[in-house]
Amino acid sequence: MRADPRPLLCIATPAMADANNGNWQTARRWQRLLSGHYRVALARHWAELEGPERPAALIALHARRSAPAIADWAREAGGAPLVVVLTGTDLYRDIAHDADARRSIGLAHRLVVLQERAPLALPEALRARCRVVFQSCPARAPLPRPRTFLRAVMVGHLRDEKWPQTLFEAARAIAPHEGIRIDHVGGALDAALGEAARATAAACPHYRWLGPLPHAQVLRRLQRAHLLVHTSRMEGGAHAILEAVRCGTPVLASRIDGNLGMLGEAYGGYFAPGDAAGLAALLRDCREGMNAADGRLAGLAAQCRARAPLFDPERERQALLDLLGELRPGH
Rank of each mutant, 00 (worst) to 15 (best):
R2Y: 02
A3R: 15
D4I: 13
R6Y: 12
P7E: 06
I11N: 06
A12L: 11
A15T: 09
A17T: 03
A17Y: 02
N20P: 00
T26C: 06
R29G: 00
W30D: 07
R32K: 14
S35P: 03
S35N: 15
Y38I: 05
R39I: 07
A41H: 10
L42T: 06
A43V: 12
A43D: 10
R44T: 14
H45C: 10
E53R: 15
R54T: 15
P55W: 05
P55S: 08
H62T: 08
A69H: 06
I70H: 07
W73L: 11
R75S: 14
A77F: 11
V84W: 07
L86H: 10
L91C: 06
I95D: 08
A96F: 15
D98Y: 09
D98F: 06
L111D: 03
V112L: 13
V113S: 04
L120T: 13
A121V: 07
E124K: 14
E124C: 08
A125C: 06
R131L: 10
V132R: 13
V132P: 04
F134S: 07
Q135Y: 00
P138Y: 11
R140K: 10
R140D: 00
R140G: 00
P142A: 07
P146F: 03
P146R: 02
P146C: 09
L150T: 09
V155N: 00
R159V: 12
A171Y: 09
R172I: 09
P176V: 11
P176D: 09
E178M: 03
L189T: 03
A192T: 10
L193T: 06
L193Q: 11
G194N: 09
G194K: 03
R198Y: 01
P205E: 07
W209K: 02
G211K: 01
V218M: 00
H230D: 04
S232V: 07
M234V: 14
M234Q: 14
M234D: 08
E235P: 01
G237V: 04
G237A: 06
A240N: 08
I241D: 04
L242E: 02
V245N: 02
R246Y: 01
P250Q: 10
A253G: 14
A253V: 04
I256T: 05
L263H: 12
L263R: 05
G264E: 05
E265K: 09
A266M: 10
A266S: 14
G268C: 12
G269D: 10
F271N: 02
D275H: 14
A281Y: 07
R287Q: 15
N291I: 08
N291Q: 15
A292F: 02
L297H: 07
G299Y: 04
G299S: 08
A301W: 00
A302C: 05
C304S: 09
R305F: 01
A306I: 00
L310M: 14
D312K: 05
P313N: 09
E316V: 11
R317T: 11
R317A: 13
D322A: 15
L323Q: 11
L324W: 03
L324V: 09
E326A: 12
H331F: 03
H331K: 11
H331P: 01
